[in-house]
């Protein structure tokens, strides 16, 4: 091999690594190492301070399937996805479609529809905590005006998951709105013009042009929402703390409770592995399908 060329390669390699070093050090310490460690913990009994006491094989995993609390947590997590994802997408698609029309003031409305992106989950949740209050809360006040009796939004096991879902939908609209509006604006104007010449009406255009062409974005947004819903934590910690009677004990809250309140590191890690695997599975679907794209023009 040409010696000069070799030296140059080494130099370039060294330089490349130098630029990337801080990034990979951080990712290794706070992402790669701990995910490996999570797996290790999930097969071990772990003492305080994260010291691995002994290898216990599948003990924690077997315990997972015996734990009615964990099984319930998985059930409500999926239920929560079902309550939040479709409605968030439908509503934000609606917002994107009406805000995409060329109108005076549409910029203002776009701004309002994006506002939740600048508001923390904690702040939104604190505000909704007041809205959901059984006697003083705004929602029951408005319902009372129409003669509807008070609802125990957050304190009844029948309503709590629904209420947290409602909060989550509201908080998630902005991100979806921006992504879908971007998708809408990427659709070529020519298509609409030629279809207008062909005499297509508003609804035909919406269902025959807009939605099919938007399908890759819609798919992407569905995956993002699934993952976000599955990983919800802040709103639960503020609104319900997993209750009442575990009705809103979603999986991340369950991991938090198991590890940081009960100190069951091993058992919590087994739950974290389940969370990781579910997220991994969903993300891989997105990579696979996203590559092929949903719509072919």
């Amino acid at each position: 091999m040409n010696k000069k060329k070799f030296t140059k390669e080494v130099k370039l390699f060294g330089m490349g690594i130098l630029y990337l070093l801080p990034t990979f050090v951080i990712l290794s310490v706070f992402l790669f190492y701990p995910i490996w460690k999570t797996f290790q913990f999930s097969f071990s009994d772990v003492l305080d301070g994260g010291i691995v006491d002994e290898f216990v094989g599948l003990k924690h995993y077997l315990a997972l399937f015996d734990s009615s609390s964990f099984l319930n947590s998985i059930k409500v997590s999926f239920q929560f996805v079902l309550y939040t994802v479709p409605i968030t997408i439908i509503l934000s698609l609606f917002l994107a479609v009406i805000a995409n029309e060329k109108l005076k003031g549409s910029r203002f409305f776009q701004m309002i529809f994006s506002s939740q992106l600048g508001i923390s989950g904690a702040a939104s949740s604190a505000i909704l905590l007041f809205f959901f209050h059984p006697t003083l809360g705004t929602i029951n006040n408005v319902l009372g005006f129409f003669g509807i009796p008070n609802i125990q939004w957050l304190t009844s096991p029948d309503w709590a998951l629904f209420s947290v879902a409602l909060a989550t939908v509201w908080m998630g609209l902005s991100l979806n709105f921006i992504l879908l509006l971007g998708g809408l604006q990427n659709i070529s104007v020519d298509l609409y013009e030629s279809s207008t010449v062909d005499g297509a009406g508003y609804w035909t255009k919406l269902f025959k042009i807009t939605l099919p062409l938007l399908s890759p974005v819609l798919f992407f947004v569905t995956i993002i929402n699934f993952i976000n819903a599955f990983q919800s934590f802040g709103q639960i910690h503020i609104l319900t703390e997993g209750g009442p009677s575990e009705a809103t004990n979603l999986i991340v809250y369950s991991i938090y409770r198991e590890s940081f309140m009960y100190g069951n590191y091993g058992f919590a890690s087994a739950q974290a592995v389940v969370l990781f695997l579910i997220t991994l599975f969903v993300t891989l679907i997105q990579f696979k399908v996203g590559e092929r794209r949903v719509h072919y023009q």
């Binding site: 706070f30 992402l31 790669f32 190492y33 701990p34 995910i35 460690k37 999570t38 913990f41 994260g50 993952i227 990983q231 934590f233 991340v252 991991i255 938090y256 590890s259 940081f260 590191y265 919590a268 890690s269 974290a272 592995v273 969370l275 990781f276 997220t279 991994l280 993300t283 891989l284």
Partner: peptide
């Protein structure tokens, strides 16, 4: 592919 939430125990 790695959700930060699933690494909180070892990170702690």
């Amino acid at each position: 592919l790695i959700p930060f939430e699933s690494t909180i125990v070892p990170n702690h």
